[in-house]
């Protein structure tokens, strides 16, 4: 459904990056406060998807804030390894609002040496398996996770296969 307001003023280009983009596309009081706070780093509106980058230390508080705004459903958590740039790991949390019928992507970057951030299993228990998967395949630690063990690979496996410096054929 096209929004009648945006149709009326087609000249004004929508902001696609930064705080303005986040404020233009995010609905909710707690999240707006978050965007104005020191936790916010950057945002991007592209391909009809809103990505908000936050500082990794604040991820639990940020998840609670968006949950408060009606983003009630944790969909997905994964990481992308941007080796050799630093901070190396880019974690993407996909959160859905069943009421607003919208999703946002929360992004936190963590560095390559001893990558670590807080577990959000206290906010959404659904994150349990997803955090274990990221730990297993990328080696990112989640502080406060009830039992952070390998989930896909055997327990005695060496290395984290989805890292870019891990060869596709494995170590031989």
């Amino acid at each position: 459904m096209p929004d009648p307001q945006t149709e009326a003023q087609p000249e004004a280009p929508e902001p696609t990056t930064g705080k303005q983009a986040a404020l233009a596309h995010y609905i909710g009081a707690a999240g707006t406060k978050l965007i104005e706070s020191e936790c916010f780093i950057d945002a991007k509106w592209a391909l009809n998807e809103l990505t908000i980058e936050v500082i990794p230390e604040a991820i639990v508080a940020v998840c609670e804030a968006v949950k408060h705004d009606g983003y009630n459903f944790f969909e997905d958590l994964t990481a992308v390894d941007w080796y050799p740039t630093e901070p190396r790991f880019r974690l993407a949390y996909s959160i859905l609002s069943m009421g607003l019928k919208k999703r946002i992507r929360l992004v936190a970057r963590v560095s390559g040496d001893s990558p670590k951030l807080d577990s959000i299993t206290g906010v959404w228990p659904a994150a349990n398996f997803y955090e274990r998967e990221v730990f297993d395949l990328f080696g990112v630690h989640f502080a406060g996770h009830p039992r952070l063990t390998r989930i896909m690979m055997p327990d005695n496996w060496e290395g984290h296969p989805l890292r870019k410096d891990y060869p596709v054929e494995g170590y031989r």
Binding site: K67, H68, G70, N72, F73, S97, M98, G99, T121, G122, V123, W124, P125, N128, P146, R147, T149
Partner: peptide, 24 residues
Amino acid sequence: TRDTTGATLAGFRNAEDMVIPGVE
């Protein structure tokens, strides 16, 4: 912690309790 379906988490198990255990 109210979701759009009208159900509340209050009165149910805590979020931490719902995290399933590992084999160990």
